[in-house]
Amino acid sequence: MIQPYPLQFQAEMKERIWGGRALEEFGLQLPEGAIGEGWMIGDHPNGTTKVINGELAGLGLDDIRVKYGREFFGTHGFSERNGRFPLLIKLLDCNDDLSIQVHPTDAYEGLPDGELGKTEMWYILDAKPGARIIYGLKDGIDRAALAAAIEEGRVMDCLQEVPVEAGDAFYIPAGTVHALCAGVVVAEIQQNSDTTYRVFDYNRPGLDGKPRELHVEDSLNVTAYEGAGAKRMKTDGIGANEWLTIAESPYFIVEKGLVRAPWQLSTTPESFVILVIAEGSGTIGWNDGEQAAKAGDCFLLPASLGGYTLDGSMTVLRSIIP
């Protein structure tokens, strides 16, 4: 019987027209090109990460699911229905503006086979002065108004722009029109889905030199015109060794904690724990081991791990399945 331990994975790097090289600052090895996304923990046809530490090194998260899913993922985290690991954990380098986009819910009839909807949250790791994001529609914009604005090339008039700085958290339920803009580095915790409908892309060519596809009809269909419950918050009013809930949904709960002294914690049989180290460095200790941790590292703690200790000086994002 294998003893559970914190799993770390080889990130899958994705070139994106809006990407850059900022993820190198976390010590990550980047291929050449404009790297926009590091899929840190993923079990998806478009990217499956492999374990790089300990006894299970070399196994993909899909292999872990097949062999140990029920025990490692927990009663809430393991699904017989679609099987895949329920979350996708990314680091994003937005060197340029992302397309204006919207994601469907699980119930949308136009979803590709086997695909889920996409509710997500962002935690801003770094933001250049003046950085902003697109976050929702302005009041009173209905389907007809959005459709007309897309048709007439003035969709930006319908959208809310929000200034951002490091430490801001954004909850983005499916149906919320949104876009990250240039100058931010973000940790993204989301449903395990790669379905994005592009509303507008600034009329720019893609990596292949051709205009990128827009998904106007799907976008109009899935947008939540009355709002989907998007929430944003500042997260700086937090003490040492305390958790602050920064996003809560049916798919994930994300908390932020400041580790400043040894902190005794535990997993539960209901859910695995994902730890994203946002700042600083330290260690994760458990009954028969210790793992160094630094900014940019992401770990999957099996539900069956039990007690563990965080130590050092670091800012941590903790995610579980409710």
Rank of each mutant, 00 (worst) to 15 (best):
residue 4 P to W: 04
residue 4 P to C: 10
residue 7 L to H: 03
residue 8 Q to I: 14
residue 10 Q to M: 10
residue 12 E to S: 06
residue 16 R to A: 06
residue 21 R to D: 07
residue 21 R to S: 14
residue 25 E to T: 13
residue 25 E to M: 09
residue 26 F to A: 00
residue 26 F to K: 01
residue 40 M to K: 08
residue 44 H to W: 11
residue 48 T to W: 03
residue 50 K to I: 05
residue 50 K to M: 09
residue 55 E to R: 15
residue 58 G to T: 03
residue 61 L to S: 01
residue 63 D to A: 12
residue 65 R to H: 05
residue 67 K to T: 06
residue 67 K to Y: 13
residue 68 Y to E: 03
residue 72 F to H: 01
residue 73 F to R: 01
residue 73 F to N: 01
residue 76 H to V: 04
residue 81 R to S: 14
residue 82 N to K: 12
residue 82 N to Q: 11
residue 83 G to K: 14
residue 84 R to M: 06
residue 85 F to K: 02
residue 85 F to M: 03
residue 91 L to G: 00
residue 95 N to E: 12
residue 97 D to P: 01
residue 98 L to K: 00
residue 106 D to P: 00
residue 108 Y to R: 03
residue 109 E to S: 14
residue 109 E to Q: 11
residue 110 G to L: 05
residue 113 D to A: 14
residue 113 D to T: 04
residue 114 G to P: 03
residue 119 T to V: 04
residue 121 M to C: 15
residue 131 A to M: 03
residue 133 I to Q: 02
residue 136 G to H: 01
residue 138 K to Y: 04
residue 140 G to S: 06
residue 141 I to W: 01
residue 145 A to Q: 12
residue 149 A to D: 01
residue 151 E to V: 04
residue 151 E to G: 08
residue 152 E to M: 07
residue 157 D to H: 11
residue 158 C to W: 01
residue 162 V to E: 10
residue 164 V to S: 05
residue 165 E to D: 09
residue 167 G to K: 10
residue 167 G to W: 10
residue 169 A to K: 09
residue 171 Y to C: 03
residue 174 A to G: 09
residue 176 T to F: 11
residue 179 A to T: 14
residue 180 L to N: 06
residue 182 A to S: 15
residue 182 A to F: 04
residue 183 G to T: 05
residue 187 A to H: 07
residue 187 A to P: 02
residue 194 D to W: 14
residue 194 D to N: 15
residue 194 D to S: 12
residue 197 Y to P: 00
residue 197 Y to A: 04
residue 197 Y to F: 15
residue 200 F to W: 13
residue 200 F to T: 00
residue 201 D to S: 08
residue 202 Y to M: 08
residue 204 R to C: 11
residue 211 P to S: 05
residue 211 P to L: 15
residue 212 R to K: 07
residue 214 L to E: 02
residue 217 E to K: 09
residue 217 E to M: 08
residue 219 S to E: 02
residue 221 N to Q: 14
residue 224 A to K: 02
residue 224 A to H: 04
residue 227 G to M: 01
residue 228 A to P: 00
residue 231 K to D: 07
residue 235 T to A: 04
residue 235 T to Y: 02
residue 235 T to C: 04
residue 236 D to N: 13
residue 236 D to H: 08
residue 240 A to F: 04
residue 241 N to W: 08
residue 242 E to I: 08
residue 243 W to N: 09
residue 248 E to F: 12
residue 249 S to I: 04
residue 252 F to M: 11
residue 257 G to C: 13
residue 258 L to I: 14
residue 263 W to F: 10
residue 264 Q to L: 05
residue 264 Q to T: 15
residue 265 L to V: 05
residue 267 T to Q: 06
residue 268 T to R: 13
residue 269 P to D: 14
residue 269 P to Q: 15
residue 274 I to Q: 04
residue 276 V to S: 14
residue 276 V to G: 09
residue 277 I to H: 03
residue 278 A to S: 13
residue 279 E to L: 07
residue 280 G to V: 13
residue 285 G to K: 07
residue 286 W to E: 06
residue 286 W to P: 03
residue 288 D to W: 07
residue 288 D to I: 08
residue 290 E to T: 15
residue 293 A to G: 11
residue 297 D to H: 10
residue 301 L to D: 03
residue 303 A to L: 06
residue 305 L to K: 01
residue 307 G to M: 05
residue 309 T to Y: 13
residue 309 T to Q: 09
residue 311 D to M: 05
residue 313 S to C: 11
residue 314 M to R: 03
residue 316 V to S: 02
residue 318 R to V: 07
residue 321 I to A: 02
residue 322 P to C: 10
